[in-house]
Design a protein around this nucleic acid. Sequence first.
DNA 1: GCGGGGCGCATTGTATACAATCCAGGCGTC
DNA 2: GACGCCTGGATTGTATACAATGCGCCCCGC
Lengths: 256, 256
Amino acid sequence: MDDASFPTAGAADATSQTERVIASLREMVLRGDFRPGERLAELTLVPRLGASRTPVRLALDRLAHEGLLEPLPSGGFRIREFAIADIWDAIEVRGVLEGTAARLAAERLTDADDLSRLQQCCRDIERLDSSNAADVARYVEIHDRFQEELGRLAKSDILVRTIESVVGLTFAVSVSSVLGDAESSERSQTALIALEYHRAIVDAIEHRQGTRAEDLAREYSRMARRNLVRAAQDKERFRHVPGASLIRMPAGHSSR
Amino acid sequence: MDDASFPTAGAADATSQTERVIASLREMVLRGDFRPGERLAELTLVPRLGASRTPVRLALDRLAHEGLLEPLPSGGFRIREFAIADIWDAIEVRGVLEGTAARLAAERLTDADDLSRLQQCCRDIERLDSSNAADVARYVEIHDRFQEELGRLAKSDILVRTIESVVGLTFAVSVSSVLGDAESSERSQTALIALEYHRAIVDAIEHRQGTRAEDLAREYSRMARRNLVRAAQDKERFRHVPGASLIRMPAGHSSR
DNA sequence: GCGGGGCGCATTGTATACAATCCAGGCGTC
DNA sequence: GACGCCTGGATTGTATACAATGCGCCCCGC
């Protein structure tokens, strides 16, 4: 699951031109190389991406389906603009779906041994030093592993696919802002709570408490969601989050 | 080569070639013109769809994203095969998401007048004659209107988009099998219950009972889901449901 | 001066030609 | 006889040429 969580320079070693162009273009959009609402002309992208129109067109189509671009009625695409509320909703939907994964995992658990990977994730989080800034990235990786394993235990390919289609629109703020943008003292508190949530979810699945697992996973995502608002306050820092440039900053909009 | 067999029955009036090809190909896949697992070669589709490789390729990419096809590691695509469990899960996910729409509609309701369209849907259902087979199609239309309005009241573009991405994989069995495949007497009972669900959901939204609205919408989708299994028993009738040919039937009529 | 129509450019949509890659079959050798 | 390499065909991936369509600007007429 290498879903664009970070502006990884993984765009270089793609097998096909198309894949490379898709990754590059996505990176450019998330980095803010274009203004929201700006129309993307194929021919202007051809020299910047180093490929012909065919892969570029394919990439545009792909990103439009991901939701980063929106098709124009007269043809072509433009950069989509998001309100903070859109990201808020994306995280909510993601939480709902991950909650469903947790519930199905509980309902469909057959062998307690299947929980070993989740438990390993908990131990891995435990070992992290929350005062160490470098461990934040490691936490993100562990969290992704946890969610991925949750999807596997849910035993529903369609659910996993649906989750993936939403994750791209959360702009990685959900995970990175859980720990990344807090003060060191607050960060260690948040880390503790996050660990507790992970443990509780595993416990709920183990005892086949589907509703409890679902609610926990939902509420966990809302922790990230609340942090989004706070992270958005610190505009200087927020600029570095991938995709932040696509978000229209309201002047005085409080929560909805 | 019989030109008369063009699949342009319902996809005749498309603006662009690509749209027409996408619609035609989707229709062909759902109708069962290909066997599950069969590889789709672009060049074999070109004469059948009456367009060059470019739109055909675009259409293949699109259907793959919709989940009807799956990409092969060596390139190209093949018809995806579904288990009954996959459809079951798709309806579950759809129910979860529509439940979320109902909950958000309740949480975000500002003006009671916004419920007028939902109430109109209830009245429309009320007027239907459940013994009239033609009214079944009308019920499906009203149900779609209801869900569409629910999405509008949820005020979340991302949620609506996510729902749309799943609806395609429910193969219309969720709605049509609610009423379509039952005996007349049973059908009128089911119609009554469906009406009650719609009313209850509106009532819950009106009183801002988010959780109740969510649970009701979920359980309503499960009614359709249960009927799916029963509908699948009647294999003769089930063959006519679009997409049924993509579903791998379990050997015999064993399962419960 | 203002409005409408037409012309031209820019851009997307479509078709096709070319390149690379994968798979299968056969032949040769060990 | 079996294994492995090599070659040929088929198929996808990529580039580019061509067509069509929409958009804006300018000019002409009122």
